[in-house]
Design a protein around this nucleic acid. Structure first.
Lengths: 331, 331
DNA sequence: ATGAAAGCGCTAACAA
DNA sequence: TTGTTAGCGCTTTCAT
């Protein structure tokens, strides 16, 4: 059986209250008794029972992290960022990944009221009525990670999808490209939507004609990128450059292009979004937008912990993470 | 304040014991009272306080998942597998990622005795004395995910690194390759070591000469693969095929080779290990070994939950996950 | 500065 | 079948 403060009390010949105080660094204990207690504790190899502590305090030092049903590089970085920050503040991280048997909404309901976590971070690809309603219910504090920071009066951490996509287009325009196509992500993904909007707005600002069939639909997978580009690679009037809404699709384009014996960027240029691990090493290396994923997790956790600690409960903050153009050799 | 059984009891006009029993499906409550309680509970939107429940039961339904300090696709799949299985059995998943401020050993010590988790799964790239010592201490049950299943008398889930590497070489030999090089992974990684051993043994079985400078060192990164292969690409006597200990390094080889204008597999063939997302879409698609990562997480969680539930506490099981050769176009 | 005691929400042993 | 009650490990008032 794991040692408890009772046993420490016995060993140190003090009351459990004193033990509790000594261990939590209460000013009022003499340094002698404190030493006594600390010695006893270390002798017994004591570790406080977190469950009991959270329980009695009526609040938990566990941070919940609700993830949608996908798994990739992006998520592990978020998890790491959150856990690292949580740890530094004395919190634990609990991952709640959604899947066929458990929806985002259900997870929200549960975590709001089962006392397990003291707060949570939730990744929302697309905010809908149901999720919003679930979040409105009173409960523990939370922070949203989302492509869109306009989602109600909630604390949100987001990347500047729109601006970065906009900048990417301007960069291409400055390089002299005039015929630009876009492969967009899933229609139910705010990051994808905002990137597309950034693309469209930048094009119209710079008087870039947007041909309808150059607005291609993808779903963020490599396959969908390949599929999309194949639709226009046969036509006479080809775009000079393709801006894919993420790197995976961009790399899908690489395949389609290179398997036709065409050269990137000479025959057709490609740019992406995300800067995943391999993009740097792709051949040619991919020009893209570096999303600072680790910072997203970190800042979301920091903001959440502020709220959990009650340090800063002021009105909802909208935190936007800067991302940067990474110019390489694909355009 | 979240509703408690007390409030349900009041509303349903029964005692808290009855509420507790009704909610936990005790046979002895009349279906009428049960209905009464259930109605009251749903009216109050009641959810049991997990912390209190774990606490009073003296055991936790939280599964700890201790990860080393890396983040990639592999981990998210493990996490997902674990969490999905945990959820299906009524457990939660807590991720404890190691990093500069927290070591694997420390995590083990903590989780063993702070009552937070009822058991844990730990990913161990390389078993050493310290970790083994930490694991020997009595505490909650655990399962190891490791490249090497010979690590003491512990429950372990592993992939058949050795056999798969062996098979890969035999496949290459059957294809007629005689000059085979290997790029190995980090020296402190058991998966890497076993893959190398499989390579070596298969070579000697089939009388494949192993030139010393064809045994290249890598560290699982793309960069290291590129670096490694560059050392031999200039020599007159080049290998016909390079077997990299993981896909990332294999793709690093792609870069080095293709940027010299050489063709895969005509000039030099490449094979990898892992079957990461992009390997299928690489150009040419990469022949590799598909590691069933999702199964690793699932089986580790299943075994752990058996132990936590006390269903099956028999002596340590060594579970080996089959992996399969995925033959594509890079050799 | 220290101790005694109440109590957090729930379960389970014991009574009725 | 249901209710009463003790108690899990800890923190925190209230006394001393």
């Amino acid at each position: 059986m794991a040692p408890t403060i009772k046993q420490i009390a016995k060993l140190a010949n003090v009351s459990i209250a004193t033990v509790s105080r000594a261990l939590s660094g209460d000013e009022k204990v003499t340094s002698e008794t404190k030493q006594l207690v600390l010695n006893a504790a270390s002798e017994l190899n004591y570790r406080p029972n977190i469950l009991a502590r959270n329980f009695v305090k009526g609040k938990s030092n566990i941070v919940g992290l609700i993830l949608p049903d996908i798994s990739d590089e992006f998520f592990s970085e978020i998890i790491r960022g959150v856990d690292e920050t949580s740890y530094d503040h004395g919190y634990y991280t609990m991952v709640i990944s959604s899947h066929k048997n458990r929806s985002l909404v259900e997870s929200v309901h549960t975590l709001m009221s089962n006392g397990l976590v003291g707060g949570f971070i939730i990744l929302i690809p697309f905010m809908d009525q149901k999720i919003e309603a679930a979040l409105m219910h009173e409960g523990v504090p939370f922070v949203i990670i989302s492509g869109d920071n306009n989602a109600g009066e909630f604390d949100t951490v987001t990347t500047n999808n729109y601006q970065s996509a906009f900048k990417m287009v301007e960069f291409l325009v400055n390089k002299g490209y005039k015929k630009i196509a876009h492969i967009s992500g899933p229609a139910d993904n705010n990051d994808a939507l905002l990137r597309k909007k950034g693309f469209l707005d930048a094009c119209s600002k710079h008087k870039i004609e947007i041909k309808n069939n150059w607005l291609l639909d993808g779903n963020f997978t490599m396959e969908s990128g390949e599929l999309a580009i194949n639709k226009i690679l046969n036509e006479d009037d080809k775009p000079e450059v393709i801006f894919a809404a993420n790197d995976m699709m961009a790399l899908g384009c690489y395949n389609a292009i290179q398997s036709r014996g065409l050269k990137i960027p000479d025959d057709i240029a490609i740019t992406g979004f995300d800067d995943i691990l391999i993009s740097k090493y792709a051949n040619p290396s991919l020009t893209t937008v570096k999303v600072n994923t680790d910072r997203i997790g970190k800042l979301a956790a920091e903001r959440l912990i502020e709220k959990m600690d009650g340090t800063n409960n002021k009105t909802a903050q909208k935190i936007e993470i800067e991302s940067e153009l990474v110019i390489r050799n694909s355009c």
